[in-house]
């Protein structure tokens, strides 16, 4: 418990001074500044239309598992996390990017998976070793889509 809090504290301090997370097999390096990741992971802006698909596709983002989203043609929307309608007026693009990349940097106890992390897992199935849930491009597409939810 103490250790946990300590780790949490480190992350917050690290986040506010700007900490770089190293690149590895699947993921590129990124830098956290003030609770956000200001720079695009691909260096380009994403495609909101593709991002909308990532949000409901069960095989990729599946954000709908836990969030309501303005995607009326999809039948089931989860209620584990907050409704993401209006998320772009609550957060900046950088803050949204960090929440998709690794929301545990904000809340170490969250159920929300880190969508752009490829190591540090317990009993990972072989086929996922070295992989992140989403690719950099998919993260950027999602960010672009979420930024349309004013």
């Amino acid at each position: 418990m103490k250790m946990h809090r300590l780790l949490g504290a480190t992350v917050i301090i690290a986040a506010s001074v700007g900490m770089t997370f190293a690149a590895s097999a699947e993921t590129v390096a990124y830098k956290i500044v003030d609770d956000g990741i200001p720079k695009s992971l691909t260096g380009k802006s994403g495609d909101a239309k593709a991002g909308r698909k990532v949000a409901y596709n069960r095989k990729t983002g599946n954000c709908l598992a836990c969030h309501k989203l303005p995607i009326p043609e999809q039948q089931f929307h989860g209620e584990v996390g907050p409704d993401l309608k209006g998320v772009a007026s609550r957060y900046s693009e950088a803050e949204i990017r960090l929440r998709v990349v690794d929301s545990k940097k904000m809340n170490s106890d969250t159920i929300m998976p880190a969508f752009y992390r490829d190591s540090g897992f317990t009993r990972l199935q072989k086929k996922w070793v070295g992989k992140s849930i989403l690719k950099a491009q998919e993260v950027e597409d999602l960010v672009a889509y979420l930024m349309t939810l004013k």
Partner: peptide
């Protein structure tokens, strides 16, 4: 696992919620 969740995240923290 890759989704990095414990039993408790679903069955303690979120019992009653739709996933």
């Amino acid at each position: 696992g890759l989704l990095d969740m414990a039993c408790k995240h679903c069955h303690e923290d979120n019992a009653g919620n739709l996933i």
